[in-house]
Design a binder for these strands. Structure first.
Lengths: 206, 206
DNA sequence: AGTGCTATTGGTCACATGTCCAATAAACGT
DNA sequence: ACGTTTATTGGACATGTGACCAATAGCACT
């Protein structure tokens, strides 16, 4: 009597399998980095053979790009969900969440993608698309706030870009050990936002 | 009669050879990225066998880290040389140079190093060391300016960090195609510096 | 129950990487 | 001129990557 040496195949609908692959890849991207997304690694996590991954993604770069988009978009929905409450409160929520652990992983992912996109055209396109989505999302928020009188600024797009630059600047340090630290680093993002949106100091904190 | 198949060996002093290797690696880092620094690639550029590179750098990561330090430090000396003229003029020179082509390569290198340092402890240490050097250099400049009355700010360290965050934020976009563009992106760095240093608008431009 | 479609397997292939080592030859001192 | 030191070579090895493909077997439909 021999026990089966190979587990019975589980055969899934293409759409479901594809989604499963991307979900796994996105998780790896967020937790360990885009270069850890390999055909073999994803296959192992899903307990299938590597060839199957190649079947759904003939180009590995395509898988990595889509995984990034999925991860970035998913996190954006958590950090800055579409239209939900007053602009000031929405922004406050965003900055509050940008202190959590999940945000560090997201910052690392962006850093990862922005560098890696140098060599990967499809990833570069995905990065620019996600940047556009993030920018539009924040721009809408700023405009809403200006319209309702909560924010005050002359050029909403300029205000948006100034906030994003500070966010991305702080994100540059996501992989640094925190050997260096200075009090002013803490409120850096909120201070920038308060300034360009004509809010009083501390309006976006706590 | 046979022509020699192998070129005669050129035997150099260890210090010279080591320096030659690092110079080559630093050039590759700045022009093509840290991941292009491979034992074989450097060997080819110097027209020696790969084994020789391993002889001088038993660990490839060590070579990459030192190459980054060399490249970053070299560029810093060009952009923000130690004590040379009045603070305002030195800063103006820095921002003027940060529009050139070489600066784009440097921004890419920093992005590269900050991401890659996630997986390479020695590179991470090198990045933080170079960040410290850059920070100190700028902090000295700010303090000089405040002392001479050219700049006005309450906390020189905070002013320094705010400038650096904007510089690094803009650097995040170094690998993006310039499909998106907005007028406010141009003066972003100088505007931030002018603001935190109590300068009038445009004082650091042109 | 039988049949066709195709998701899935298992294996191969070419390529690039870092690391290591015995043999060689260039440069130097005697 | 001869030895000695050691910089340098040439090659091997293990590992990890993406890509590719014929054969297999699960599932839906008839």
């Amino acid at each position: 009597m021999v026990s089966r040496l190979t587990a019975p195949r589980t055969r899934k609908a293409p759409a479901e399998r594809r989604d499963e692959i991307l979900r796994t890849a996105a998780r790896i991207a967020l937790g360990e980095g885009l270069e850890l997304i390999t055909v073999r690694r994803v296959a192992e996590e899903l307990d299938v053979r590597p060839g199957l991954i190649s079947h759904y993604f003939p180009s590995a770069e395509e898988m990595v790009s889509e995984a990034f988009s999925r991860a970035a978009l998913g996190e954006l929905e958590t950090l800055l969900p579409r239209a939900s409450g007053a602009p000031l409160e929405r922004l406050r929520t965003f900055f509050r969440r940008s202190e959590g652990e999940g945000y560090l992983a997201l910052s690392r992912l962006w850093l990862n993608a922005r560098h890696t996109s140098r060599f990967r055209p499809r990833l570069q396109a995905a990065v620019e698309q996600q940047e556009g989505i993030m920018r539009d999302r924040l721009l809408d928020l700023v405009r809403d706030g200006v319209a309702s009188g909560a924010f005050h600024c002359e050029d909403p797009m300029q205000a948006t870009l100034e906030i994003l630059v500070v966010i991305d600047g702080m994100g540059s340090y996501a992989n640094a050990s925190d050997r260096f630290w200075h009090p002013s680093l803490d409120g850096m993002m909120t201070r920038a936002a308060e300034r360009v949106l004509g809010l009083q100091a501390g309006a976006l904190q706590g």
